[in-house]
Amino acid sequence: MGLVEARRPVVLIVEDEFLLRMDAAEAIEAAGFEVIEAVNADQAIEVLEARRDITVVFTDIQMPGSMDGLKLARAVRGRWPPIKIIATSGHLHVSETDLPEGGRFLPKPYSPAQITGVLRELTIGG
């Protein structure tokens, strides 16, 4: 029985709107995941470069900064292939073919149950 068994999957939330990020973080933590937050793709890349334990990136598609969520998803797939990707948007509809293989799209507004359902599918069923 080591510490490894007690580890929760780590989810990186990338969302520039504070309240949406806070709500997502609360829902994801309540579902038993560890949460790290980033306000844009640039900050997300810094976090990913610094940590080796991130399981899922949950990103908004429309964000200010050097890249949007789709570019971030492709960058993550290229540099960190095992990391699962969930993209969300309230304005765009993105087909799963626009995302890297295995990526999922969750339209806003999403419920805590929807977000945790997709996370569990990706981390347990994946």
Results as ranks from 00 to 15, higher is better:
V10Q: 04
I61T: 06
E37A: 06
E5M: 07
D23P: 04
R77F: 09
G32T: 12
V118I: 15
A41N: 00
E26C: 14
D16H: 10
L48Y: 08
D53L: 09
A27M: 04
V56N: 03
A73V: 06
V11Q: 03
I85D: 13
R77Y: 12
A27F: 03
T116Y: 11
K71G: 15
V35N: 02
R120S: 06
M22C: 10
T123C: 11
K71V: 08
H91D: 09
Q43E: 11
P9R: 07
I115F: 05
L12F: 10
S89A: 14
I115S: 04
L119C: 06
G102I: 02
V57S: 03
P100E: 03
V35L: 03
L122H: 03
E49A: 10
H93G: 04
A50G: 06
I36C: 01
P112R: 00
K84Q: 14
D68Q: 14
L3Q: 14
Q62I: 13
W80K: 14
R51E: 08
E46Y: 05
L3D: 13
E96A: 10
V11A: 01
P82Y: 14
A31K: 01
P81W: 15
F33R: 09
Q43D: 06
L3C: 08
E121R: 01
V10H: 01
V118Q: 03
P107G: 04
P107H: 05
K71S: 15
E17Y: 07
A24E: 09
A31W: 02
P9Q: 14
L99W: 10
I36V: 15
A24W: 03
R104I: 14
L72K: 14
S66I: 08
K108W: 01
F33K: 08
Y110N: 02
Q62M: 10
F58V: 09
D16S: 05
A24T: 13
A113G: 00
V94E: 12
L12S: 07
F58M: 10
G103C: 10
D68I: 05
T55P: 01
I54G: 07
I85W: 15
E96H: 12
A73I: 08
D60H: 07
P81C: 07
I115V: 15
G125R: 04
Q114E: 12
F58W: 06
R104P: 05
P82T: 00
H91Q: 08
R7N: 06
